[in-house]
Design a protein around this nucleic acid. Structure first.
Lengths: 223, 223
DNA sequence: CTTTACATGCAAGCCTGTATGTATATATAA
DNA sequence: TTATATATACATACAGGCTTGCATGTAAAG
């Protein structure tokens, strides 16, 4: 065959990325050959090498395509203004949504499973590893900033310092994601995960609501 | 060369395991060849194939050699009796010790870094992956049981159910380990990690010390 | 003399990178 | 508008390296 149209080429590129995503997920990154990807995509290695420099480049593109929700969510929250900004409930809901996305969005679930359990962060992947580390630092900073502002609003209890709360939440989320993404059955991921988040966020509050008689635990919504 | 003594063979075996551990850590499991391991150990592939069936077998042996502290610790705690049994402080200290071990015991640190970030849980490694999953489930069960007994002793606050506390602690530990094991510098691992654990465990307590007038947040140490 | 604890050699497969072929879309010029 | 040139989007072919698994030595321990 030969050159089709520009949009056809784009579809080829997407097919290659799809194939890579599935094969990386099934067999792991380093056990997947470019030839295997090409054939799964219905093309030859020529096409792969046309669109991507090498496997690491392909991997990066695959990762970028499933633009990970975390960063966006937090940065979005950090940009907020108004009476509801920096309420802990907002952050908790954002975390809950991340769990939901990972459990229900097949692409995100696959890509993150690959990132967690199907690739080795060495050699040609060390650029990827460095990006992952940086993102993680960035996330910690953003969370810390969020908790700082929440604390300024009186949302954070005296038991927690912003930085420790950030580390704890980040660790908690990472651990839960790692746990469930290692398993095919994610039916209880959202439910159990949300309960953990609820419990954790309740402990962040300044007034832990000693459940006086069984009253509701929501604050009156005056903000 | 030829057959030396039995103990010499054992030393050869250890040398192979040492080499494998370092190379897996440096270059990742699937990017490390048995020939590379053999040469790093000062032998040939013949020796490797004599002692181990294949790479997966070698990997398993390497993992087993650095018998992971977690299981032992928890099972040890679960076997305890007496007035101090099932105090949350005991569990917290155990978690803290795990952090310390990972930061200071080079072998454990390396092996766990490999398990977290240097291998792909697929294909020939799926037996390993299954074991990891089972361990994780086991750990969750043990933690749940511990928190149940702690709750029976009145150590657990009403905000937490044992199962959620177990999930949260497990996630928190996994996340923190994953975070720091991805980085060469673990100087603040124990300190920051311990502060997170302290904060987390304080929130588990039945009486969250509502800081009535701004007083100190530590309990009087009669426990 | 047999078994152990390796070393060495060989065949085969797989994967990568690159070089080269090729047909077509598209730009350009006449 | 048509003819031509060129860049595009791949397919194919080739060389080379790296691994693995096995088969076959081999020297010393027991």
């Amino acid at each position: 065959m030969a050159r089709r149209t520009k949009e056809f080429a784009e579809r080829t590129r997407e097919a290659i990325l799809d194939a890579a995503e599935h094969l990386f997920h099934q067999r792991g990154v380093s056990h997947t050959s470019l030839d295997g990807i090409a054939r799964a995509a219905g093309v030859t290695r020529g096409a792969v090498y046309w669109h991507f420099r090498d496997k690491a480049d392909l991997f990066t593109a695959m990762q970028a395509r499933a633009r990970l929700p975390q960063e966006d969510v937090i940065e979005c929250l950090l940009g907020e203004e108004g009476p509801d900004a920096y309420r802990l409930e907002r952050l908790r809901d954002a975390c809950r949504e991340i769990l939901w996305v990972m459990a229900n969005d097949e692409r995100r679930g696959r890509v993150y499973t690959i990132l967690f359990h199907r690739c080795e962060y060495v050699e040609d992947m060390d650029a990827v590893a460095e990006r992952m580390r940086l993102r993680s630092e960035q996330m910690l900073e953003n969370l810390t900033r969020y908790f700082q502002r929440a604390a300024r609003r009186g949302e954070l209890g005296s038991l927690w310092q912003p930085r420790e709360a950030a580390f704890a939440l980040h660790g908690l989320m990472t651990g839960m994601l790692s746990h469930w993404l290692a398993r095919p059955d994610r039916s209880e991921m959202v439910e159990t995960g949300s309960r953990c988040l609820d419990a954790f966020f309740r402990t962040l509050r300044p007034d832990p609501v000693a459940a006086p008689g069984g009253g509701d635990r929501r604050r009156t919504g005056l903000g």
